[in-house]
């Protein structure tokens, strides 16, 4: 479970995140919804320990991220906005590198890698070097290496951005499986379709502030709109 309380983060004088609070539950997929520059990535980066907060608190399964970022990172799997791979390493080597950095035993690494390769349908690229991977193949490697330690909490920054239909589908399937395993999944997106297809709950964020948190039905009901997109525009108030 992830809970953020009154988080504030400035870059210079600009408040990128300005008092954000929300909770992402276990066994649910929570969507962080907002325009580009709304503060989604900044919030997530504080959450996975790469940015320091100016004030507020962030905790993961009761561990304070701001005080003990390394302990918190052990409980999180992150797929960052950046999907950089090492062009001379194979998919398997990418996954093993992160697994070893996390100190997993060799047997566990082997077994988990096999499972993930199968689940993501990437056996064919397991021994191939990353130079020349398609966007989808890159994304699968990123996903696999972020899940190798079987984390309780999964954070994804725009996970299906730029993916084709088939890859998007397999990512969705994985997320549903993880949800069924009672994991806590938090993803950011600016694509309505994706959020409506996946998320149990959404947090609408704009200008660094949370404008809405609740189920999709509630969002539509509250705004009196017919579609999620209209509801989103009506909440953020910048639909002109």
């Amino acid at each position: 479970m992830i809970s953020i309380n009154n988080l504030v983060k400035h870059f210079g004088k600009v408040a990128a995140v300005d008092g954000v609070s929300f909770v992402a539950r276990d066994g649910a997929i929570t969507g962080l919804l907002g325009h580009n520059g709304a503060g989604k990535s900044t919030t997530l980066r504080v959450l996975y320990g790469l940015l320091k907060a100016d004030s507020g608190s962030v905790d993961v399964d009761g561990i304070d991220v701001l005080q003990t970022p390394l302990q918190a990172q052990e409980r999180i799997g992150v797929m960052t906005d950046a999907h950089g791979l090492y062009p001379r390493l194979t998919a398997r080597e990418h996954i093993e590198y992160f697994a070893r950095l996390r100190g997993l035993p060799a047997q566990v690494i082997n077994d988990r890698t096999q499972v993930l390769l199968a689940r993501l349908g990437m056996e064919d690229i397991a021994e191939r070097r990353a130079a020349g991977y398609s966007q989808g193949e890159k994304m699968k490697v990123c996903l696999a290496r972020s899940l190798i330690h079987n984390p309780q909490n999964i954070i994804m920054d725009e996970p299906t951005n730029g993916l084709d239909v088939m890859t998007t589908r397999s990512v969705r399937n994985i997320l549903q499986t993880l949800k069924a395993e009672n994991k806590c999944i938090l993803l950011s997106s600016h694509i309505m379709q994706e959020v409506s297809a996946l998320c149990d709950e959404v947090i609408v964020i704009a200008g660094g502030k949370v404008l809405f948190q609740g189920t999709l039905d509630l969002l539509i009901k509250q705004t009196g709109q017919n579609t999620l997109e209209d509801a989103f525009v009506s909440v953020t108030g910048t639909g002109a």
């Binding site: 996975y48 390394l70 302990q71 999180i76 992150v78 960052t80 950046a82 950089g84 090492y86 290496r145």
Partner: peptide, 17 residues
């Protein structure tokens, strides 16, 4: 190079000093 190919951020989310 690590930064240029955008592999630094994913690397740093691992709990390593």
């Amino acid at each position: 190079g690590e930064r240029e190919r955008k592999s630094l951020e994913p690397l740093l989310v691992n709990p390593v000093q």
